[in-house]
Design a protein around this nucleic acid. Structure first.
Length: 460
RNA sequence: GGGGACGUAGCCAAGCGGAUUAAGGCAGCGGAUUGCAAAUCCGUUAUUCCUCGGUUCGAAUCCGGGCGUCCCCUCCA
């Protein structure tokens, strides 16, 4: 597949370093609050990338961190008067509650900063030894002036950044753009011992250390939201390559577009955000997934409840088809239709999910009449196979085989009896009665559809 | 001040110099089907892609100006 690489500003052919093994590191959350829609979008995109790469025959080693110690965590923990670890633990478990509900695949491992302090200290020491960092009053800073290619990811020069004027000069730093690898502890803050005294890791160092520890050098994909390009990934890149060597850290830097709300970036700090859980409570997770994947991952997305409603309606089309297909047997020998190859081509083109969804809907439209006719058609099992493959790649839930359940079996029988009687009324043209039955059932969520071949029903 | 992205039908949204009727979804309209609904299918809804120029045999797609919107340069997915 071709994948856009922020470093080269180009769609490059994705070929993992180790042939069929793709190593992917995704920047995780700082667990001090619930995830919002923007987080949901980001992890959804990596979930789909993960699913697609696997379907392309790669094994994918996905690592995603939790930054479980930093200023925001300390501040929030102080507000709530609980230990930082308790806060982080809580929101890590909330993270999984939301992401599991949303159908996001689990990464292979979720390393946490506080469990890697030794490795981080060791790594900082290496940066200092190499001459790219210096200690200053218990802090350790990366010296951007000593690292010539600083700015290569975000394509900015130091002069431009300083002209931005929002840098904070500190007497401790040699240059205002220098950033902390290690921060000395203020009174009352959590700390770990280090060669530079008591303190804690700076923001960017954890990703450098943990990605190198678990995935090694020259990993295939390192991703996150577009807001991480600078300073987070720029700094990560600098400090990492300062140790492992130029071009030895990451092969593909990928970044997803941000979610806006009322034409402004969704962000915790500004209060302009919607909690993911709130959406998951109000809409089908699959509908939300369809909505988000309807925009290309690199484009910004303005959150629009109206469009989400539309997607929810659109999703019933997929869902109904899947339900009807559950009665169709699997094909004796699987075969791919042209639609699947088109679908695959779309995703191979920098994960073009909107286009892939387009092919999926066209495929449904072409095959749906056969399904509704009710008579057996030998192409249906193949249709089923292909559609399910597509849905799996996009992460849409497949109707699992209804397990034997006495109660719901009884319910089915009761509804079938009602339908039988209602059809007798219809034969006798007692439509006011048959319509009343239909309306009543409808009001409790049982929808009757009178087809030529007979009446069928579904739950709304 | 510097860097970057975008502006496609009523709405959301693909399209990355040339099959082509400019995907797909939602909504609308007309039709088939139906006792009526629902579901499904067919047709229809942008001779045109913010605007003005330019390059080209050919541009929504490339270049320049204008108008508008957003992001990054600060914690952030």
């Amino acid at each position: 597949m071709r994948l856009y690489n922020t470093l080269t500003r180009n769609e490059d052919e994705f070929i993992p370093r180790k042939r069929k093994m793709a190593r992917m590191y995704v920047c995780g959350v700082t667990p001090y609050d619930y995830c919002h829609v923007g987080h949901g979008r980001s992890y959804l995109i990596y979930d789909v990338l993960y699913r697609f790469l696997r379907s392309e025959g790669f094994s994918v080693l996905w690592i995603q961190n939790f930054t479980d110690i930093d200023d925001k965590i300390i501040n929030r923990a102080n507000e709530l008067n609980i230990p930082p670890k308790e806060l982080a633990d809580r929101f890590i478990s909330e993270y999984f509650v939301d992401m599991d509900r949303f159908g996001i695949s689990r990464a292979f491992l979720y390393p946490r900063v506080t469990e890697h302090i030794d490795e981080i200290v060791e790594f900082i020491s290496k940066v200092v030894e190499k001459g790219y960092a210096y200690e200053s009053e218990g802090d350790v800073y990366f010296s951007v002036r000593d690292y010539p290619s600083y700015g290569k990811l975000s394509r900015r020069s130091l002069e431009e950044m300083i002209a931005g004027a929002r840098v904070d000069p500190s007497e401790k730093k040699k240059d205002p753009m220098d950033f902390a690898l290690w921060k000395s502890a203020k009174p009352g803050e959590p700390y770990w011992d280090s060669p530079w005294g008591r303190g804690r890791p700076g923001w960017h160092i954890e990703c450098s250390v943990m990605s190198l520890l678990y995935l090694g050098e020259e990993i295939d994909i390192h991703g996150g939201g577009a807001d991480l390009i600078f300073p987070h990934h720029e700094n990560e890149l600098a400090q990492s390559e300062a140790v492992v060597g130029d071009g030895k850290f990451v092969r593909f830097w990928t970044h997803n577009g941000l979610v806006n709300l009322r034409s402004e970036k969704m962000s915790k700090s500004t209060g302009n955000f919607i909690i993911l859980r709130e959406i998951l409570n109000s809409y089908r997770p699959e509908a939300f997934r369809l909505y988000l994947l309807g925009t290309h991952y690199r484009s910004p997305l303005d959150f629009d409840p109206q469009a989400l409603e539309d997607a929810q309606r659109a999703y019933t089309r997929i869902e109904d088809t899947l339900k009807l297909l559950s009665h169709i047997p699997d094909p004796p020998s699987p075969a791919y239709d042209q639609a699947f190859w088109d679908f695959r081509d779309a995703l191979s083109n920098d994960l073009n999910t909107p286009q892939a969804i387009g092919t999926l809907f066209s495929y449904i439209r072409e095959n749906r009449p056969l399904l509704d006719k009710g008579n057996w058609d030998p192409t249906l099992p193949i249709f089923k196979f292909n559609l399910i493959r597509m849905c799996e790649i996009l992460g849409f839930k497949i109707e699992e085989k209804t397990s034997p359940d006495l109660e719901s079996d009884k319910l089915r029988e009761v509804i079938d009896i009602i339908i039988k009687i209602r059809n007798k009324l219809r034969e006798e043209k007692l439509f006011h009665l048959s319509d009343e039955i239909r309306d009543s059932l409808n009001s409790i969520g049982v929808i009757l559809e009178d087809m030529k071949e007979g009446t069928r029903w579904k739950m709304s």
